[in-house]
């Protein structure tokens, strides 16, 4: 499903000096895998995830998603892919201010394949156990609840690929475990889940671990699923 070849990403600082965040990285992720990306801070994990999520473009190398080479894609085409194929979950939730949980979940429908459908948004919230919180504002919800709203939002257009960048980084362990349970459920449904994390306990949910160091892929190994049923 994901095919990254010799992929490089170089940022330019304000003063023009280049920062090589990713250097000739290659890997593949098959449909339905649950992969964690790990590595020290600044090793290029988020850069990688943003490129995989079509939110950013590589400066070299190729990225194929479902066999399609995306480097020639326009902003419109990439956005189209994001709207249908990708669900992002961020560390800091990014719920919109002065907006209810339900309205947050409805946002991707504006850009997705279907129409804005309140009932479907409500069903999405119920799925993450927040049917009763639909009309609460983000500020009225706990961190764990906010992240579950964000997951419902990421899922509303039914994307096959879930990209989560340290989704439990701002949560206590109980709330983190709830979020991980949902991600594992998504994996069981057949979705591909790519998870960036620092946390060993969180990483233990995955079947495979890709390790980055200084923008280079340091290791890529299958791991035993420690947290079974």
């Amino acid at each position: 499903m994901i095919e990254v070849t010799n992929l490089g990403k170089t940022y330019r600082r304000g003063d023009g000096t280049p920062v090589a965040a990713l250097k000739a990285v290659s890997f593949q992720i098959d449909k339905g895998e649950f992969v964690t990306i790990r590595g020290p801070s600044g090793s290029g994990k988020s850069s990688m995830l943003n490129i995989v999520g079509c939110l950013d473009r590589p400066t070299s190398g190729t990225y194929r998603l479902n066999g399609e080479e995306l480097s020639g894609y326009s902003d419109k085409q990439l956005s189209h892919v994001r709207a249908r194929k990708i669900g992002f979950v961020f560390q800091s939730f990014h719920l919109m201010p002065r907006t209810t949980a339900l309205e947050n979940v409805e946002i991707p429908m504006v850009y997705g394949p279907g129409r804005v459908d309140r009932k479907r948004a409500l069903a999405g919230l119920e799925r993450v156990g927040l049917g009763g919180r639909a009309h609460h504002y983000g500020t009225e919800l706990s961190g764990g609840e906010q992240q579950r709203v964000a997951i419902a939002r990421a899922l509303i257009n039914d994307p096959p690929l879930i990209l989560a960048d340290e989704p439990t980084g701002n949560l206590d362990s109980a709330a983190g475990a709830e979020v991980m349970a949902i991600l594992r459920q998504l994996h069981r449904e057949g979705r591909t889940v790519v998870l960036v994390t620092h946390d060993d306990a969180v990483a233990a949910y995955a079947e495979r671990e890709i390790l980055f160091r200084d923008g280079v892929l340091a290791s890529d190994r299958k791991i035993a699923v420690l947290l079974g049923e």
Binding site: G53, K76, H80, R82, F88, H94, M96, P108, Y111, G112
Partner: peptide, 14 residues
């Protein structure tokens, strides 16, 4: 908000 909308599929024109 702009970043979030873009991440869920909004293009520049939207």
């Amino acid at each position: 908000e702009i970043g979030l909308r873009r991440s869920v599929g909004a293009n520049r024109q939207d």
